[in-house]
Amino acid sequence: MSLRAVNISVKLGARAVLCGVSLEVSPGELVAVVGPNGAGKTTLLRALAGDLAPASGGASLDGRSLRSWASLDLARRRAVLPQKPSLGASFTIREVVELGRFPHEDRGDDDSKAAARALATVGLGERADDPYTQLSGGEQQRVMVARVLAQLDAEHDEPRYLLLDEPTTALDLAWQHRLLRLTRELTSAGVGVLAVLHDLTLAATYADRVALLVDGRLEVVGETSAVLTETVIERVYGVRATIVEIAGSDLRLPLVIGGAPPPSSPARGANHRHNVEQVQPLETRV
């Protein structure tokens, strides 16, 4: 019982975007995928969603290859939140969320209740009849989250999985945390979640395990505190970081302090380091 990538390689044209990546998401755990831009995070998520055909390797859900699943059966067990929602049609918020019920529509569940629950969860229950297109980017993202929640709201107990591609990008600070706390509630209910995240602090706060992708390879995967160390962060991202222990909890969060010299341009790097050592506040420098 798991959502599993086995030795997946993906090529875009001649370029290898993913090289032999294996990763497993079990029901009830939150796995964060982190890494620099272009490391292949979204590609890995798309391969796990079945959106692209890997050059080699493959993805499976609960022991069966993704391709052998009927599309509706798959949609009842697995939801995907895309990176950038694009919906130009003037649906109401409620209608967008009800699209998430599509795979359940002939199963006798109460679809409108499921949609209403999902909308209340993202704090938009009162505005269900507003047009979706007039919302801000962050609000639209919350509607899409509700759509995904409605899709996972099943009165049947198949194991369920959720794939989130940079879900916090459009959200303000409070909603970034609310979304990830929501995700933790889902994992407590037995949902397996894979989330592509840029914010290492968010990843360290909420994830059970972290998978670090670099240049299409899985650099390391494991317990959050074991993966997100000062040396790893500096080596992979080229920024200096320190690990802060939060008093009164067992959290150990990476705090990014500033840039380190990019290896290719020593002159600019030296200048940059100079700035960092002076510990000038960022605002006054700009």
């Binding site: 969603a49 959106d51 599309s71 949609a75 939801a79 895309p82 919906l87 699209l99 599509f102």
Partner: peptide, 14 residues
Amino acid sequence: DCLLLGETEAGHLG
């Protein structure tokens, strides 16, 4: 209706 979300998203909905 689902296709209005985009082809990929419609595929995710089954």
